[in-house]
Design a protein around this nucleic acid. Sequence first.
DNA 1: TATTTTAACTAATGTAATTAGTAAAGTCAA
DNA 2: TTGACTTTACTAATTACATTAGTTAAAATA
Lengths: 192, 192
Amino acid sequence: MRITKSDVIQTAADIADKNGLSNVSLKAVAESLNIRTPSLYNHIDSLEALLREIAHNGMKTMNERMMQAAIGKIGDDAIKSVGITYLNYMIEHPGIYETIQWATWHGTEETGKIFDNYLSLLKTLALSCNFNPVNIDEILNLLTGVLHGYTTLQLRYAFTKPDEVRTALSTALDTVLAGLHQKYDQHEKGHL
Amino acid sequence: MRITKSDVIQTAADIADKNGLSNVSLKAVAESLNIRTPSLYNHIDSLEALLREIAHNGMKTMNERMMQAAIGKIGDDAIKSVGITYLNYMIEHPGIYETIQWATWHGTEETGKIFDNYLSLLKTLALSCNFNPVNIDEILNLLTGVLHGYTTLQLRYAFTKPDEVRTALSTALDTVLAGLHQKYDQHEKGHL
DNA sequence: TATTTTAACTAATGTAATTAGTAAAGTCAA
DNA sequence: TTGACTTTACTAATTACATTAGTTAAAATA
């Protein structure tokens, strides 16, 4: 009968996934939890803060899953594997992903830190592709951009044909990686 | 003293650009126009409908600018020119762009139609790149994805260093186009 | 067991969207 | 120009939430 902060966030996240971000209200969350609206303030600071917590939780979960997905892989394989994991999370949790996008505009330093963890993972993997480290930021910007934009735009098809969208993403990443290799691959240094 | 629907949309769009989407309220719009909130209902159906109108107006304006930017150009040049125009609009009108993203989740058929016009422009330009038409949808999905994702993620830097972000986008598009050419360029058919 | 914290509650306030009903000002035909 | 009609503004009232204040009971802790 006693409720924790984590319960509140989970419940709100579920509502977002089922009914969309715009239907997440303190009233709706409280009803789901069978408590009165003001009682939520024992766990959260405000509706905005709750939304940010949903986003942060989601981002952290994604980061963990992507790290798992990268284990035992390097180079293009690792990057594609991470990309598919990213897409899968979005398909499973569209409401949370919507909240993450909301947090892009309403984020705090915390939001930035969690995003940096994601960048850090991608950076390690990109370096394992044998790209010239000088260009690593350029490369990261392109990879994160493609991942975010491609998955967002394809999400509407992802519910009806998830497998097609997954293979399409893989193909798209192949194309981008081909461009990256052509442009940024390190030339073999002379043998010592 | 008399106000038109277009005035309402413009005013709301200005508020979005200046203060962000979350500060667009009927109250704020009415105050800017020096009328009472309920009077807005003579011009719009609801707050949601108003936001959609902001998005649709913005998307149409972007489409027009991108078509202008493409005139007299073909191939990679045309696509890069369109991409820079896309980015420029976002820098000029971050609030409208935020609203367009909102409309991605809360859109109507109208939203889809305007987006299709954008796709149609890009399709024409992509075909002028000499890609194999069989793969044109794949190519479009990648191009639109990169454009959306890259610009969204770079927007935060775009206000302080707009020129750097612009050239960086150009470079990123070069990379993607290199990948696309490597994979999808049509081979010369035998001479007839 | 006594004390302190936690987390629930009711009651009250403030803000914003929306609806209903009304009046004034503009439009247009006879 | 006058009178019907439409448009667009208004006030008043309703509703839905978010949020704050103050209170109480249960849980945790010492």
